[in-house]
Structure formats: structure tokens, C-alpha cells
């Protein structure tokens, strides 16, 4: 279970998180929506301990991680897989080396077994036979898939997605959404995604949280999000700019 308690985070004078509290059950699939620059990536990075909150706490399976050292965190992070917005593949390595990174470092498996697991993970993201390619040779959608393969190859319990469909054309975006749902069903992982793409949010999320002005402004099922009378949620869902308020 993932729990955030009253997270605050500022960069200089700019407050990004102003008291975020949330709770995500094991096996659940949650999407956090919100405007670009609203702090969604920052929130996600707090959940996996890449950033430390100014105040507040993050609790993973009963363990407080907000004040852990980087070395202690390495153990906790083994439970997580994360897909970055830019995929963040290691560009000096081939696809196979990227995907097999954790397995090779742990050095518990035989090279032959690593090769098999890498092929299996690439199969799951529907990309077979590209093991020897370099990230620079891949399209945006393929990179995201390789990033996903790298995040799930070691069977984490929780997978975090940062804008999984942003910057992709609608067809590729749709296939990525499908993949996220497949991964959740096949591996039984807890899924947390942040996005500003409502179509994607509706497909992936069993529960949707809206981050607004540094707090969770609204939470509910996809149906509730689409049917609510809340003006802020409405404007976001319909994609209408608030002409009186240009501070984006």
C-alpha cells in the first residue's frame, strides 16, 4: 500500500505541493490528472523516493521512506518499476542491456536466463527481436515500450507511469494504454499513472485523482469525474481555458 501524508514541496519561493494526501491500495489502478506544470511528476517522484518532501511523509507497505538515505531507499525501490515521461533509456546501451539492467546487476541469474527474461519482457510489450538496437534508433512509442519492459522485467509490485501517452499519436497512445491494462492484469501490479490526457486516464484508471494548486482537489471513479458539477474538474475534462486566469 502507498500512502502520502500532507506532502509539501517548494523549489525556492515556488510551492509545487501544498499538502497532498492520498492512499493507494494494493492492486489498485489510480490515475492522477492535472495541468502541465502542476506538479504531477514531482508527486510521482516523491512516491518512489527520488525526491524528499519538505514536510509530510510517504509510507510504502507500512515503512516511512521520506527520511531514508539513498542506500536504504535502493532496497525499497526494488518494489517499484517506473516509466519516465521521456522513457529515460540509457543511450549508451542496447535495448537488451537496458531491459536486463537490474538482472545483470543483481547477478543472481545466469546470462542465458537473463536473455530469456529480457525476451519475455519485450514480448509482453509487443516488441520482439529488437534486442541489439540502440535507443536512438527507436521511435517515441517504441522507447516507451522498452522503458516499460525495463520496469517490469524484475517483477515489481508497483508500476509508476509518468505521462505514458504524452507526445504520441492517438493510435500509439491507445496501444500504450492497452499495454498498461494488460501489464496490470497479467502481473497483478498496483498501477499509478499521472497524465493530462483524459482519454488515457479513463482507460487506465479505476480511480482518478485531480491535482490542483498543489492539493488533491477531487477524487472519484472515471464516471464521477465526467459527471461531476465541480467547475475546476469540468473545465479540465472539457479542455476549456479559464480566460480570467492565465497563470499557467
Amino acid at each position: 500500500m502507498i500512502e502520502a501524508r500532507d506532502l509539501h514541496k517548494s523549489f525556492g519561493a515556488h510551492q509545487v505541493l501544498a499538502g497532498v494526501t492520498l492512499r493507494i491500495q494494493k492492486g489498485e489502478s489510480v490515475v492522477v490528472i492535472g495541468r502541465s506544470g502542476g506538479g504531477k511528476s514531482i508527486l510521482l517522484k516523491h512516491l518512489i523516493g527520488l525526491l524528499q518532501p519538505d514536510t509530510g511523509d510517504v509510507i510504502i507497505d507500512g515503512e516511512s521512506i521520506a527520511r531514508m538515505s539513498e542506500r536504504q531507499l535502493l532496497r525499497v525501490r526494488r518494489k517499484f518499476g517506473m516509466l519516465f515521461q521521456s522513457a529515460a533509456l540509457f543511450d549508451s546501451m542496447t535495448v537488451a542491456e537496458n531491459v536486463g539492467f537490474v538482472l545483470r546487476r543483481e547477478a543472481r541469474s545466469h546470462p542465458e536466463e537473463i536473455r530469456r527474461k529480457v525476451a519475455e519482457a519485450l514480448d509482453m510489450v509487443e516488441l520482439s527481436g529488437i534486442q541489439e538496437k540502440k535507443p536512438a534508433e527507436l521511435s517515441g512509442g517504441m522507447r516507451k515500450r522498452v522503458g516499460l519492459a525495463r520496469a517490469i522485467v524484475y517483477r515489481p509490485e508497483i508500476v509508476l507511469y509518468d505521462e505514458p501517452t504524452t507526445g504520441l499519436d492517438p493510435i500509439v497512445a491507445d496501444s500504450i494504454d492497452q499495454l498498461i491494462v494488460n501489464v496490470r492484469e497479467r502481473l497483478q501490479v498496483t498501477t499509478v499513472a499521472v497524465t493530462h490526457d483524459m482519454r488515457s486516464a479513463r482507460r487506465i484508471g479505476q480511480r482518478i485523482l485531480m491535482l490542483h494548486e498543489g492539493r488533491i482537489h477531487f477524487e472519484g471513479t472515471p464516471e464521477e469525474v465526467f459527471s461531476t458539477k465541480d467547475p475546476i474538474v469540468n473545465r479540465f475534462v472539457a479542455g476549456v481555458a479559464d480566460t480570467r486566469n492565465h497563470n499557467f
Binding site: L50, L74, A88
Partner: peptide, 14 residues
């Protein structure tokens, strides 16, 4: 800046 170092950290490498 391309988040590769953050990726490394999520993959449990210091």
C-alpha cells in the same frame, strides 16, 4: 537532464 540518473536510481543502482 534526460532523467537517466533518476532511472538508474529507480533501478536500484546508486
Amino acid at each position: 537532464v534526460t532523467e537517466q540518473i533518476d532511472a538508474l536510481r529507480t533501478l536500484a543502482a546508486h
